[in-house]
Design a protein around this nucleic acid. Structure first.
Length: 658
DNA sequence: TTAGGGTTAG
C-alpha cells in the first residue's frame, strides 16, 4: 500500500464542507476588501490572530475575560469564524457558565454554523443538565442541513444516558451507526456508557462485542457496570480477558468487590495489582480502605494506613482518603482515631461529615454527633444528604433522644428539601420503639407514603422484643415474614418476644415455622484479634480452644468477683424453657464472655480489649461487661451486629439504652 | 472524546 492510499488521508472531501468553506472564505474576503494586502496575506494574518486568541481562551479563568476576548473577536470581524467561537463556547462550558442567555446568543449572528459549533452548544447544554435543550439544538442543526460529526453523537448519547432515556438512546445509536459507524472508539465507549446508565447492560455488552476496535476504557466501563449490578463473576471474567490492565481497570475491580460486600477479594485484587507493578491512586486506596472497614479488624486498618502513606496520600489533603479512614476507624472500634483523622482534614465534604456523624452515633456519642450535624448545616456550605440524616437520626435512636429526633426528621424535608426514605422511617420507628412508644411507631408506619420495607417492620419488631409487647410484635412479624421470609433473625426476634412473656406455646409455633421453612439458626460467634494479628473465634460453649481450661477458670473467678459487686445472672436473657440452673450454665458460655476471659488472660493490663460479635448482645452480657470493666479496671469495646459499646469503670457509653 | 470514587438503617 502506498502512502497516498493510507487511511489517514481521505481521498475525497465531503461536498458540504467545501461549499461551507468557500462561503466562509468569501465572507472573510468581503470584510477585508478595504485592506491593501493580498487575499492570502490577509488570511495568514487572520490565522495568526485566531490562534493567538485561542491560546488566550485557554488561559481564561472567568466570564469577564471571555467577554473581553469576544469583544475583540467582534471588533476584528472574526465573528463568523466557527473555529474561534467553538473554542469560546467550550471555554464557557468548562467554566460552568449556563448556556442561557450568553453562550447561546454567541452563535445566533453566525451565518454558516458548522457541526463543531453546534456540537459545542449541544455539549454545553448536556453538561449543564438541560437535556431537552441539547436535543432541541440537535434538531435546529439538522434543520440547517448540517451533517453531525462523531463528537455530536457523543454529546447526544451522553445526554440520553444522563436522562436514562433508553428509547431516545436507541434512536441515536441507529443514527450514529448510519452516519458514522463506529468511526472512533470513544463513540462506541459513550454508547456503552449510555446503555449502562439506561439500565440495559445487555445492550451495552452487545455494543462492546460488535465494536471493531476496543480500548481499555471500553472494558472498564463494562466491568464497572457489572460490578454496579452486583455481578462480580462477569466483571472478573471480563477483567481476566482484558489484555493490558491499567490502574483504573484494577480500581474498578477493587472497589467493585468492596461495594459488593466481598472485602477479602478486594484485598486480593489490590495485592495482585501491586505485584503486577501498577501504582495505586487515591481512588484505589479508598476502595482498599473501604474493604478493610468491612473486615472491621485493626490489623487491616493498620495495613490500610500503611498503604495510604506509602502511596503518598495523606488524609489531611485527600478528602476521599480521609473520609474512608474516618469510616474505617469507626467500624474497627477506634472512634478516637476516626475523630483525629476528621479533625486533621483540610477539606471536608458531605461524605466526611456523614461518616463522622454515623461513627459517633454508633459509638453512643449522640450529643457530639448532633452537635457536628448542627455545625455542618449552620457553619459550612455543605448540604446534608440522605445518608447524613440517617446518621443524625441513628444518633437519636441509639440514645433515646425522641424530641431531637423528631426535630431532625421534620426538618429534613421542610428545611433541607431531602425527602425521607424508608430508611429514615426505619430510624424513626427504631427511635420511638426503643423509647417505648410502640403505638406511635406503628401509627408512623401507617402515615408512610411509600410501602414500608423489611427494615421498618424489623425495627418495630426489635422494639417489641425490648419492651415485651407480643400484640404489636405479631402485627410487625406478619408483614416482616412476608417481605423477608428467609431471614432467620426475624423469627428468632418473635420467638424471643414470646419467651420473655413466658408464652412457650408461641415459642413452639415459631420454632415449627422455622423448621417448615428449612431455615438454619445463625450460630453466635465472637472474635478478638491478638497482637500478632491472629484472629481467635469463640463459639457458644466451645471447649476446643487450646486455652479452654484457663478460660473457664478465669470466668469462674470473674463471676465470683462480680457477684461480690451484686451481679445476678439475668435469667430472662435465655429464651429456652429450661431450669434456672441450666439457664445459668448457658449464660456463662455466651461467646463474648469467653472472648473477654481470653483477652484478660492474653493482653497487657493497660490495653483496650476489643471484641466483635455477629449477633446482638444479651442483657446479661451487657451487665457482665459493665461490671467486669469495673473490677478489672479495663476498657472493653464491644461491637455487636448493630453498634459499639464502650465499657469503662462500670458504665457503658450507651447509658444502658440499646 | 470516552473509564474507576469514600458514607445507609432494623
Amino acid at each position: 500500500m502506498t502512502v497516498a492510499h493510507s487511511h489517514r488521508f481521505p481521498t475525497a472531501v465531503n461536498p458540504i464542507n467545501i461549499s461551507l468553506l468557500s462561503k466562509q472564505l468569501l465572507h472573510l474576503g468581503r470584510t477585508n476588501n478595504n485592506n491593501s494586502g493580498t487575499f492570502s496575506e490577509i488570511s495568514h494574518q487572520r490565522e495568526l490572530l485566531v490562534s493567538s486568541l485561542i491560546s488566550k481562551l485557554d488561559d481564561c479563568i472567568n466570564l469577564n475575560q471571555i467577554k473581553q476576548i469576544h469583544g475583540h473577536v467582534l471588533r476584528k470581524g472574526l465573528d463568523q469564524s466557527c473555529y474561534i467561537l467553538t473554542k469560546l463556547i467550550r471555554t464557557l462550558t468548562k467554566l460552568g457558565v449556563p448556556m442561557d442567555p450568553y453562550p447561546r446568543r454567541v452563535i445566533e449572528p453566525v451565518q454558516f454554523r458548522n457541526p463543531f459549533l453546534w456540537t459545542a452548544v449541544i455539549r454545553g447544554y448536556t453538561i449543564e443538565g438541560k437535556f431537552d435543550e441539547a436535543i432541541a439544538m440537535y434538531g435546529c442543526m439538522r434543520k440547517e442541513e448540517i451533517t453531525p460529526v462523531s463528537f455530536t453523537f457523543s454529546a447526544l448519547l451522553k445526554a440520553c444516558g444522563s436522562m436514562g432515556d433508553l428509547n431516545l438512546g436507541r434512536q441515536f445509536h441507529a443514527q450514529t451507526f448510519r452516519l458514522r459507524g463506529f468511526c472512533f472508539v470513544y463513540v462506541g465507549n459513550t454508547m456503552i456508557d449510555m446503555y449502562v446508565k439506561c439500565g440495559s447492560i445487555v445492550c451495552a455488552r452487545k455494543v462492546f462485542d460488535e465494536m471493531p476496535e476496543r480500548d481499555v476504557i471500553s472494558w472498564t466501563e463494562l466491568i464497572a457496570a457489572y460490578a454496579r449490578v452486583g455481578n462480580m463473576e462477569s466483571a472478573a471474567e471480563l477483567f481476566e480477558s482484558l489484555p493490558t490492565k491499567d490502574m483504573v481497570a484494577w480500581t474498578a475491580m477493587v472497589t467493585g468487590f468492596a461495594q459488593n460486600a466481598k472485602p477479602q477479594e478486594a484485598l486480593e485484587y489490590f495485592d495482585r495489582m501491586e505485584k503486577s507493578g501498577i501504582l495505586a491512586d487515591e481512588v484505589t486506596v479508598a476502595g482498599y480502605i473501604s474493604a478493610c472497614a468491612q473486615l472491621g479488624a485493626s490489623k487491616y486498618a493498620d495495613r490500610a494506613v500503611q498503604i495510604a502513606q506509602k502511596s503518598g496520600y495523606s488524609p489531611s489533603d485527600h478528602v476521599i482518603i480521609g473520609s474512608a479512614l474516618v469510616d474505617m476507624y469507626s467500624k474497627c472500634g477506634n472512634v478516637e482515631e476516626a475523630v483525629n483523622v476528621f479533625v486533621s482534614m483540610n477539606n471536608k465534604n458531605v461524605f466526611s461529615y456523614s461518616s463522622m456523624i454515623l461513627g459517633l452515633a454508633t459509638h453512643g456519642r449522640a450529643q457530639e454527633a448532633l452537635d457536628l450535624f448542627h455545625y455542618m448545616v449552620t457553619q459550612t456550605a455543605i448540604k446534608p444528604n440522605t445518608v447524613t440524616f440517617v446518621g443524625a437520626l441513628t444518633a437519636c435512636s441509639h440514645s433515646g433522644l425522641v424530641v431531637q429526633g423528631r426535630q431532625v426528621f421534620d426538618s429534613m424535608y421542610q428545611t433541607f428539601g431531602v425527602e425521607p426514605t424508608r430508611d429514615h422511617y426505619t430510624c424513626m420507628v427504631d427511635l420511638l420503639g426503643r423509647a417505648g412508644q410502640l403505638q406511635e411507631a406503628l401509627e408512623l408506619i401507617k402515615t408512610m407514603s411509600v410501602e414500608p420495607h423489611g427494615g421498618v417492620w424489623g425495627a418495630l419488631l426489635g422494639a417489641c422484643r425490648i419492651h415485651n409487647d407480643p400484640y404489636i410484635a405479631e402485627i410487625a412479624a406478619e408483614h416482616l415474614f412476608e417481605l423477608e421470609p428467609d431471614i432467620i433473625g426475624n423469627y428468632i426476634l418473635l420467638s424471643n418476644v414470646y419467651s420473655s412473656a413466658g408464652d412457650w406455646g408461641g415459642v413452639l409455633r415459631v420454632r415449627k415455622l422455622i423448621k417448615e421453612k428449612g431455615l438454619k439458626k445463625t450460630p453466635a460467634v465472637s472474635w478478638v484479634v491478638d497482637k500478632n494479628g491472629q484472629m481467635h473465634k469463640f463459639f457458644p460453649g466451645n471447649l476446643n480452644h487450646p486455652m479452654s481450661k484457663k478460660i473457664q477458670d478465669k470466668l469462674e473467678e470473674l463471676v465470683e468477683r462480680l457477684t461480690a459487686l451484686g451481679y445476678q445472672p439475668d435469667l430472662s436473657s435465655v429464651p429456652y424453657d429450661v431450669s434456672d440452673n441450666a439457664k445459668r450454665l448457658i449464660l456463662i458460655q455466651h461467646t463474648e464472655k469467653l472472648a473477654l476471659a481470653f483477652s484478660l488472660l492474653t493482653t497487657n493490663r493497660d490495653s483496650t480489649i476489643t471484641i466483635m460479635k455477629n449477633l446482638r448482645m444479651c442483657q446479661d452480657c451487657h451487665m457482665f461487661m459493665r461490671l467486669a470493666s469495673e473490677v478489672t479496671r479495663r476498657v472493653i469495646i464491644m461491637r455487636d451486629n448493630m453498634r459499639f459499646h464502650h465499657f469503662r469503670s462500670g458504665a457503658c457509653s450507651c447509658g444502658d439504652f440499646w
